[in-house]
Design a protein around this nucleic acid. Structure first.
Lengths: 354, 354
DNA sequence: AATTGTAAGCGCTTACAATT
DNA sequence: AATTGTAAGCGCTTACAATT
């Protein structure tokens, strides 16, 4: 049988150990305020009696600091946790916060409920890390007025300190790599470039109108490369995908590969899109990379688990999380950061030897 | 410029709206305690003045309930977030908790620091969901004495209410599927069956000694199938992997496929292992499934993103998370649950037509 | 009878006072 | 001078009293 304990307070300890509550508190929080011997006696006594240390709610109420960092996500929790890019970011962030004994509170961005309880926890949070997206949600609007520190990641804004990558440069380099093969027919699988809610064909004009900053930057990088190679834009096929899922990737790839003139290059705004395209191509017995080159974006771990492995833009999401965490905690100067990306030379688009 | 607000309290609202603090509190928490008209006037007034509702720390201190559920993980946060099985579970759990306006606090199991601050948050938590592993950690020991509700998932124990799958049955069925092909040489990639800390060959005897319940159950399922097919155990090759990573999977597969007598069946305790084996096999130009059958376990999404797709045991991790959450919240009777699994017929091991 | 207000106390931290 | 204790108050909820 498990033996349960009563909930112990600092008062109980003070009585049991014959000191004041202040001394107990100091023993835990301000070692310089009492003699070493007394501190050890108290710590030992508390351990023996089963007192786990000051109650977090009370401490937080008193000090105004909770040690909890709110992470405002662009999508639902379930999406973010299962998306490799977001989860890598969260892992990096969690590592840093954990080292400093801070905790993470994941806040879904899409909040429809107006119940005040869903906002309750916001009052506990010491500040926010905003991850991705534009966040037109009410929750987001409220945050701005809370006068708490905010770091934004993968958001194109001047309202906060941001941690970003150079999306345009990365996209440009990946597209150039594909275009070096002098393809006949280029296709792009884009993410949330247009406001549609299903996988659909897009025109270049529509794409320019997109407000989603990350996608737009990548799009501009692609355009830059296409222009450099004088690729006729009217020949370009673009399928836009509203949500970065494998299913959508397959659908997009299927649409592209069923065209009368089949693309020999597919440039993708994410590795998930690229992996979907790869799978569909292989199922259709299209030789990759011989008859079809594919480049991705992100450098997720899974991109190197396939055969052939994916050629993609490696971004360092874990590092991104660590940087955001360190900045939030003030361990790193609070200033805008643009992290580098690298080309990850996989097998789906080899380099052209010249 | 963003305009910041002062931190408002229930007192400020009482003064501004000319009612008592109790009435403000009731307006938020006990609608039956005041007239509809007054309640609306208060809610509207608070909104207008920018009061977000009662402070969570104060409320939690007063009521003893925080709405925060501690999720005790077997490994580090970064591992759990990036593991597809764990993250699916977390996604399901998060969904349920979020609907009920509860929050999740992820607690890494491997806690070496003795700083009391790392335990601070434990005092806030309303209860625990323990996910996987044996948890011999100090943190775990402490939890048992806290007299808070606990639900355990993927743990073989009688100390708590548990949510589990039938690991042995699932493993048995997957092994049988592979053995139907009457393989010459069977190999197994196992997880944490032996206490070694690197990828290593294992013997059948050593494997039985494992204390890790999930792995042992799967192992027993494999043995059951092997016996049924009279497969000579002395011919079996087993590589045991301490941590479920792709790198380890590749190493294990490499070891197995470099043997003088190459296996024509590899049975894997996880899809990550199976995907690694598939990749290594394809890189070595071994035809899958013709010359090598592979079966996995888990049914992670990525297992269906490859070509060929993986034959594996589908477990419903998101459902597992939902069930654990619902039970924790008391929306479902608190009783032990064993969730079903299904065979997911992919291409790496087709069914034998007889 | 229906509505609203008073006041205690949840467990802690910390300025400052009191003691050695 | 070094060590320890007193007491107020963080923001809230709720039993109960007071008012209409």
């Amino acid at each position: 049988m498990i033996e349960y304990k009563k909930k112990l307070t600092i008062k109980d300890m003070a009585k049991a150990l014959n000191v004041s509550t202040a001394t107990i508190s100091n023993a835990f929080n301000r070692p310089d305020q009492l003699s070493e011997s007394l501190r050890l006696r108290i710590i030992e006594g508390c351990q023996r009696l089963g007192y786990e240390g000051p109650n977090a709610a009370a401490r937080s109420l008193r000090t105004g600091v909770s040690g909890i960092v709110g992470v405002l996500l662009a999508d639902s929790l379930s999406y973010c946790i299962s998306d490799p890019v977001a989860s890598q970011f969260l892992a990096g962030l969690a590592d840093v916060l954990d080292q400093r004994q801070c905790n993470m509170l994941l806040l879904p961005g899409q909040e429809e409920q107006t119940s005040y309880k869903s906002r309750q926890m916001e009052s506990m949070v010491d500040g926010y890390i905003i991850y991705g997206g534009l966040h037109p949600s009410k929750r987001f609007q409220r945050l701005l007025q809370q006068s708490k520190p905010i770091i934004a990641v993968d958001v194109d804004t001047t309202d906060f300190i941001t941690v970003n990558i150079d999306n345009q440069e990365g996209a440009y380099r990946s597209a150039r790599l594909a275009l070096q093969h002098r393809p006949q027919k280029v296709a792009i699988i884009s993410l949330r470039l247009t406001p549609v809610s299903s996988v659909s064909w897009a025109t270049c004009d529509a794409c320019y109108a997109s407000p989603a900053s990350v996608s737009r930057s990548r799009w501009l990088g692609y355009m830059q490369a296409l222009q450099e190679y004088n690729y006729p834009l009217e020949q370009l096929s673009v399928v836009d995908v509203p949500v970065n899922t494998h299913r959508n990737a397959c659908m997009a790839a299927f649409m592209l590969l069923s065209q009368e003139e089949r693309p020999d290059v597919i440039i993708c705004m994410s590795d998930r899109m690229a992996l979907g395209a790869l799978q569909v191509a292989l199922q259709q017995h299209i030789a990759v990379p011989n008859d079809l080159k594919i480049v991705g974006f992100d450098g997720i771990a899974e991109s190197q688990f396939t055969h052939p492995t994916l050629t993609t833009v490696q971004q360092y999401n874990e590092l991104k999380g660590q940087m955001a965490g360190n900045m939030f905690l003030g361990l790193t100067p609070r200033q805008n950061v643009i992290l580098p990306t690298d080309m990850l030379m996989g097998e789906t688009c080899p380099e052209v030897m010249s």
